[in-house]
Structures are given as structure tokens and as C-alpha cells.
Amino acid sequence: MGSHENHGSAKTYILGFLFSLLLTAIPLWLVIQHVMNKTALTVSILLIAVLQLIIQFFFFMHIREGEKPRFHVMALVLGAVMVFTIVAGSIWIMTFNSQVH
């Protein structure tokens, strides 16, 4: 059953692993060497983290698998929006709060 599905191959796993190693090493190096100013550095390492998340989702977790419609992808996308709302919203709301004090 389900053998027609694509479960990834050794190649995709190795590729994904190499990408992840790279995307972990780069920000580490950036931070230790202090190559940019603080804001630029923060933004770039966050972006790299998001990139690595995408790599893992595609190469390791095979989110493209599964029958259509892909409800799990919809749930993940909506989840990402909510995660952003929670984190960014809290920071937004709470920093104003601490300036008032």
C-alpha cells in the first residue's frame, strides 16, 4: 500500500543534510566574526534560520507528500501566520508597555 508515494531518496536526504550544515555554519561564522552591524546581522541570521526551516520541511519532512487537497500544508501556512502574530504582536505590544513605565 502507498508504495507509489515518494518517500525521498538517499540523495535528497544527503543534500538536505549538507544544506543544513551549511546554513548552520554560516550564521555561526557571521556572528563570531561580527561581519555586519547589529541590525543587519540579526536580520540575516533570522532569514537563514527560516531558509533552513524550509529546507528541512522539503528535504526531511516531505511536506509535498500526501493526497490532495493538502490540508496539512494549509494548516502549516496558517500556523506560520499565527506564530508570527504571537511573537511579533507580543513584542510590539510589550515594548510600548515598557516605554510607558
Binding site: T24, P27, L28, V31, H34, K38, L41, T42, I45, L46, I48, A49, Q52, L53, Q56, F57, F60, M61
Partner: peptide, 24 residues
């Protein structure tokens, strides 16, 4: 396996947000 990959993804953000931003 899915669970395990997921925990790795969460750790990437801990690594970035907590540790890298922390030692910056």
C-alpha cells in the same frame, strides 16, 4: 520521524534566537 525532524526545526530557532543573538 516527523516529530524528530520537527524538534530539530525548533532547535534551529533556539540556536538562532537564543544563542546566536545572545552572544552577539
Amino acid at each position: 520521524g516527523l516529530y524528530w525532524h520537527f524538534l530539530d526545526v525548533v532547535w534551529i530557532f533556539i540556536f538562532t534566537v537564543v544563542y546566536l543573538l545572545g552572544v552577539m
